[in-house]
Amino acid sequence: MNNIISVQNAIFSYPGNDIHVLNDISFDVSQGEWVAIIGHNGSGKSTLAKAIDGLLSLDSGQVVVDGLELNENTVWDVRSKIGFVFQNPDNQFVGATVADDVAFGLENRHVDHATMVAKVDEALKLVRMDKYADREPAGLSGGQKQRVALAGVIAMQPKIVILDEATSMLDPQGRQEVIELLHELKQRYKFTVLTITHDIDETALADRLFVIDDGSLISSGEPEKILSDSKMLLEKGLDLPLGEHIKHDLKELKIEVPEEYMNSSQVVNWLCQQLSSME
């Protein structure tokens, strides 16, 4: 598999501040992969995502996206390969109505009117917001606004989709809607996904998990491997996933539990077996 994103020795600090918000980060992401990124507030996750999209330029290091090295000349081509959904649903809604907003990216790419209408239509149907095409954002729920943002991304047919805490300002129902939709779209279009999130249970579904701490990539690997390292997760101010949380608590109570990663239903099954084997 070829690498669609490759970041080498990325170093970045914000102007007027010497702290390296990105402190020598390197990694590769292969085509079609789903990578989840976790880390405490201010660890540099959003900064990293923006650097990949060329929204800020590194002090040193290199970003290559789909074979293009990111620099001043390639930045617009790189951005055209990436769809970005941000945290605050209100602050990324550019259009005056739902349809206008979805069309915004297409307008920027000089797509002709007939194609644009067709693409907007199709994208809105995919996120099940076609009935709301003429509505203004003021009347929509947070979850609906984020679905519109996803439609805007889909209409551009990007190779990579980055979600920076796209569900963190939503209520549980809105969150569920957006996550399910994302899975559905990923199945269909096979794009590469980077998700930044604080919801540890959401990361268990990813192919790979990155842990960022104070600007460094301190751990990366399959979720099973990283999520079973409860000591590291707790040390870095993160949550334990449900199954591991129960295992962790039982271990504290001197119950012997398996070492390897288990999700919650595996833990439940294991416990029930233990109980029945005793009788």
């Binding site: 129960i246 039982l250 504290e252 109570l253 919650s264 416990l271 109980l275």
Partner: peptide, 30 residues
Amino acid sequence: VANELTKGGFRFDPYPLTLEELSRQVAKQL
């Protein structure tokens, strides 16, 4: 989780509202 465990034979009293409490009762039964 408590509901699933109940189906598998565990008994909870009082009903656990935190994972810590759930684990305590599970540990006791084991």
